[in-house]
């Protein structure tokens, strides 16, 4: 019988590291999305267009994803 894949990769109770990984993943997703939204709006308001706009928004997205992911992994880490 094939083992169904999950975010944790295996059956049974997930280990602490697995939780932290999923926490980081979720934080990264949220951070990317919010970075795209808020960074995009503020860059547009600042008057950036074209290539500049994309590079700025991309940077904001990565930054937000990293920040959110780090905090989220810490948040799940202190809980397990």
């Amino acid at each position: 019988m094939p083992v169904p894949s999950s975010a944790y990769g295996h059956q049974g109770a997930p280990s602490c590291f697995d939780r932290i990984k999923v926490g980081f993943m979720m934080g990264f997703c949220v951070g990317m999305a919010s970075g795209a939204l808020f960074g995009g709006f503020s860059a547009l308001r600042y008057g950036l267009r074209g290539r500049e706009l994309f590079s700025t928004v991309g940077k904001t997205m990565i930054q937000g994803g990293g920040t959110f992911g780090t905090f989220m992994s810490i948040g799940t880490g202190i809980r397990c």
């Binding site: 999923v22 905090f71 989220m72 948040g75 799940t76």
Partner: peptide, 22 residues
């Protein structure tokens, strides 16, 4: 045991603090 991986409500709560930091 395996169904409840992360207490998501808690995580939402915690993560909301990030807004302030950002």
């Amino acid at each position: 045991v395996s169904g409840q991986q992360i207490p998501f409500l808690f995580v939402f709560t915690i993560l909301s603090g990030v807004v302030h930091y950002i």
